[in-house]
Design a protein around this nucleic acid. Structure first.
Ligand SMILES: [Mn+2]
Ligand SMILES: [Mn+2]
Ligand SMILES: [Zn+2]
Ligand SMILES: [Zn+2]
Lengths: 138, 138
DNA sequence: AATATAATTTATAATGATTCTAAAGTAGTG
DNA sequence: CACTACTTTAGAATCATTATAAATTATATT
């Protein structure tokens, strides 16, 4: 999907130096066909698999947070005891499988248009997102 | 709304002994006209105001978790760094004011019916909830 | 290319919310 | 009252996350 110089450009253009740690993380997060959801712990484990010298946990946190700030990642809070990040940064809906704790993107068309009738003075709508919890049959 | 013996009955009927700590917490949470949202820290502060002898933090956690397990409270995970509990245990939608971090219930009618078209084999829908983030105008 | 500067990484410590532990207290039963 | 199981509690432990501050690295400048 992307090659290394794309990531270098991406990082530079947002004022982040393309360090080897950040590039390694870019490769894991963004060099894919589909977007996905991950936890810091997932990312940390996957980085251990693909790198020789480990990236420190502090750097993983720093990087994920700066990517979030730059808009390359989105944080999804769905579960009191697990925080997910999403490489799909658009507003979108989710299935949450409560048996597996897996998050699954829904497409725009999977959920009809949502019409919020209530409004509050001085406030405007920023986003509308639906969470559909699913579970095993029976 | 409720008096003490209602709460004693409520607790007994779900196999929880009506201790003075639990009753104190019931009064704060359930003796109201409207449901509301709170954090453990909110609850803890409010309990300090109304009780002579402080209820220990462990008991507050224990009680909130057992009330959740009995279905008297619902946990709402919306913010990575703040966990809310809701005395409205039905499936319902929310505004989240991102300027104040305030959660506001939406009524069924405030959001049209939601029709989820996608389904996954072996899975059924357990709940559908909408989160509408709002922010100040301008 | 060498130097200077600021950004970044890192190991490690600190924080803070939540949970655990085990001892003391209390409610229900007969 | 006496017994038992449940509950509360203070304090310790845990664990994810953030802070610190020294070493390293990227980039700009000479
Ligand atoms: Mn919890
Ligand atoms: Mn975070
Ligand atoms: Zn997603
Ligand atoms: Zn609510």
């Amino acid at each position: 999907m992307n090659n290394n110089s794309d990531f270098i450009e991406k990082l530079r253009s947002s004022g982040l130096r393309p360090t080897k740690q950040r590039l390694e993380i870019c490769k894991l997060l963004f060099d894919r066909k589909k977007t996905f959801h991950f936890t810091i712990s997932d990312l940390s484990k996957n980085l251990k698999k693909v790198t020789n010298k480990d990236i420190s946990l502090a750097t993983i946190y720093n990087t994920v947070h700066s990517f979030k700030k730059k808009g390359y990642l989105k944080e999804i809070s769905i579960n009191a005891d697990k925080s997910y990040f999403d490489t799909n940064t658009s507003n979108h809906h989710h299935f949450l499988d409560i048996n597996t704790n897996e998050l699954i993107d829904l497409k725009e068309d999977d959920v009809g248009n949502i019409n919020v009738k209530k409004s509050l003075p001085g406030k405007k709508i920023k986003s509308i997102e639906v969470l559909v919890k699913i579970e095993n049959n029976n």
